[in-house]
């Protein structure tokens, strides 16, 4: 069963048709989980690992520039976990509004040119030690 509607697939394909570079996407999934009712999935009871796998596989098939590596873990953990390019990890099922963010993240990773404005790049260049940014989001 397709998780994305035709309009969604067309929208993703049109964003990704401008990718200038290949983008690697990695999906880590945990063991089969107890289904949870997820508001973002319309209140359906779903196994987020299985749903993420089906969704990401369907997404990545929409562009030749986007390649998917899948890792299955036997122990429970913070899964599903999606890694886009070198710097972004998304923990959870990227549904709803956050799906659009992931699609945009792939577009940014595969774009020619800098990710930020020149002044921002210069200022961030002054950071001399590792820094982690965690962003807590909801999918609606």
């Amino acid at each position: 069963m397709s998780l994305l509607g035709e309009r969604e697939r067309d929208a993703v394909a049109s964003v990704w048709e401008h990718l200038a570079h290949d983008v690697g996407v990695r999906l880590d999934v945990g063991p089969v989980a107890t289904p949870v009712a997820l508001l973002a999935a319309g209140g359906r009871e779903i196994d987020t690992n299985a749903e993420a796998r089906a969704l990401v596989e369907e997404l990545c098939a929409l562009s030749d520039r986007v390649t998917l590596e899948l890792f299955e873990h036997q122990e429970a953990g913070a899964y599903p976990s999606l890694t886009v390019g070198a710097g972004l990890r998304y923990v959870g099922l990227p549904w709803g509004y956050e799906l659009a963010s992931v699609v945009q993240a792939v577009a940014v990773a595969g774009a020619d040119g800098p990710a930020l404005s020149e002044p921002s790049l210069e200022r961030l260049g002054a950071i001399e030690r590792p820094v982690s940014i965690d962003v807590f989001v909801t999918p609606t």
Binding site: V36, L38, L39, A40, T48, A78, V84, G85, A86, G87, L88, R89, Y90, V91, G92, L93, P94, E98, S101, Q104, A105, V108, A109, P114, A115, L116, S120, L121, L124, G125, I127, E128, R129, P130, V131, S132, I133, D134, V135, F136, V137, T138, P139
Partner: peptide, 27 residues
Amino acid sequence: MLLAYRCALASPQITATAVETSEFPTW
């Protein structure tokens, strides 16, 4: 989330993680 990711792409020192809050409430 996208700005955090843009920062991560702009600096090798920065890593960005987005966490789906309703799935990981304890976090």
